[in-house]
Design a protein around this nucleic acid. Sequence first.
RNA 1: GGCAGGAUAGCUCAGGGGUAGAGCGGAGGAUUCAUAAGCCUUAGGUCCGGAGUUCAAAUCUCCGUCCUGCUACCA
Length: 529
Amino acid sequence: MFYLTTAIDYTNGAPHIGHAYEKVLADVIARYRRLRGDDVYYLTGVDQHGQKVQQTAEKDGVNPATYVKRVTKGFTHAWEKLGLDYDGWAETTNPLHKECVQGILQRLFDEGQIYKQRYTGFYSIRQEQFLTDKERNDDGTFAEEWGEVEERDEENYYFKLSDHIGWLKQYVESHEDFVIPAFRKADVVNAIERAEGTDLCISRPKERLRWGIELPFDTDFVTFVWFDALINYISFAGYNKAEGSDLPDFDQLWPAQIHIIGKDILVPSHSIYWTCMLHAIGFSNDQIPSLLVHGWWNIKKKADDGAAVAGSEKMSKSLGNVVDPVALVDTFGQDAVRYYLVRDIHTGRDSDYDMDRLVGLFNSELANNLGNLCNRALNMTKRYSGGITVASDYDDETSQQLRASLDTVLEKYRRHMDKYEISFALEAVIEFISGTNVYAEQHKPWEIAKDETKTDELNTVLNHMVEAVALASVLLKPVIPSACKRIQTQLNAEHLGTILLDDLKWGILPIGQEVAKPKPVFPRIQLEE
RNA sequence: GGCAGGAUAGCUCAGGGGUAGAGCGGAGGAUUCAUAAGCCUUAGGUCCGGAGUUCAAAUCUCCGUCCUGCUACCA
């Protein structure tokens, strides 16, 4: 079983392209694993509790439950538009989740891993945390970023993080695959150093925060984000589920192969808190998931005249440059957006969002290269052999080379996809398609069609072209599933929809295949000036 | 301040001790099966700066500069 998760998004605003990227990346990986024949469980969802939701709802004059429902709809709608095919949907207000969270809290409390302590200090409402002197400006005031700050004398519950840090340190040292890509490991090691000796505050008094899950052993408190949101990875996988529950079978799913997260939540929340929580709950070293850490989409800068210029800026509401994924899909289509989001970023690194590149990549790689190949191949098959591929004994060096290139492509594709390096895998497929276009020029089937003595060669060339399109449609399926389906419909080869990667070899289309009338699968995007 | 990542063609980036690479964009050409797509040719670079190691450095080492992120602010 290949179980993968994404971060669950905070329901305090509409999804933007960064949210969309993570979910598409996970979707591509999930679909790739299915193509490999794995059983896959893809879990994503939303984090609905917390002070900011409570406050925003109040401002809107609705109760938090209503507010959260509305914002959640925005997410599910966006994911539908992007064609995400997830198996589980995590909502932290779900009663099943609450039950699981409370069960875990009660047990850890009974085991003495959670204790109560008084703390006096200054509290930032906006950031939902206590501040220390190190957050003060030189003149003793707190910086603006903390918002309203008030003095508090509070009792709270703490999780004995310090009991597990020693174990975590060893675990991280001895497990090279814990953090992907590897260069992120240093951040984790540093963060562990800093975390040593401190425990984790896991509660908020109810008079401050009502919108959360009650502590089972003290109803004056709700649990803070950690023992709520992070638990979703196991609660919705069926951990400690009740008899007759619809949740999946936990033993089948756990451990997750990867938690897909952004670089902003690697430390301390996932690498330290969550991993120590798992250890405290009782999971062993081989039941700890790896963390796949992706980068961010920044926004490409443009000159005033729209010309390309170096540099980028962060996406932010104040700069007014937030990119709405739903609007993008409405304008350019699901395939263009999905393709761009995993093609133009190297997993783990940052990239700059640029609409011109989105359009450019779609037009050059999908429309011109693959779409046009599909179109010309089917068109000539229709025109020169009645739309049916015909057996032929003709063979030559270029045909052999094209067939041989498939092995190179498959090797490269698998190697990169297995490491979640989608952009490099796509590069390999594009090379293959481009090679097929070159192959067509080498043989010029539109010329040899006029020469009756070359019918055998013509048939071989057409077979090779159609076959290459079929192969590409399978390899690209994880990224652009709906377009690939349309290609396969034109090829009249629905059986390709269920073929596995291991069964992919030259000749997946039978001789005598009757293809349909071609229709552009990727209409070129024309930008209005 | 510490740690990490980055700096290579107009743009996006690969690569990595031995003649600088790809895609896109630009310029030119031969074509017409095709989505004005495809194919061929071509121009463009002090590989951030400096020093060192080496027969040889874009690559390794050191010292800087600039950008990004995380994190910490002690005398």
